[in-house]
C-alpha cells in the first residue's frame, strides 16, 4: 500500500487547495448574500434594447 504515500498527500493537497479557495472567497465576501445571486442569473441582458429570447 505504499501507493498511499502518493495518494494521501495528493488528496490532502487538493483538500488544502479547496480549503484555501474557500477561505479566500469567504474573505472576499462571496458568502455574504446567499439569496440575491439566484435571482440575478435570471436577468441576462439582451441585445441593446430588445427583449431576450424566450
Amino acid at each position: 500500500m505504499s501507493i498511499l504515500f502518493i495518494l494521501v498527500p495528493i488528496a490532502l493537497l487538493l483538500a488544502g487547495g479547496a480549503l484555501l479557495s474557500f477561505l479566500l472567497s469567504a474573505k472576499n465576501g462571496q458568502y455574504e448574500d446567499l439569496e440575491t445571486p439566484a435571482y440575478r442569473i435570471l436577468l441576462d441582458d439582451c441585445k441593446s434594447g430588445e427583449k431576450p429570447n424566450d
Partner: peptide, 17 residues
C-alpha cells in the same frame, strides 16, 4: 460572521480529512 465562517471552513476541511 465572516470570521466564524472562516473558522468553520477550516474545521470542516480538517475534520473531513
Amino acid at each position: 460572521n465572516r470570521s466564524i465562517l472562516l473558522r468553520l471552513g477550516v474545521a470542516a476541511a480538517c475534520t473531513g480529512n
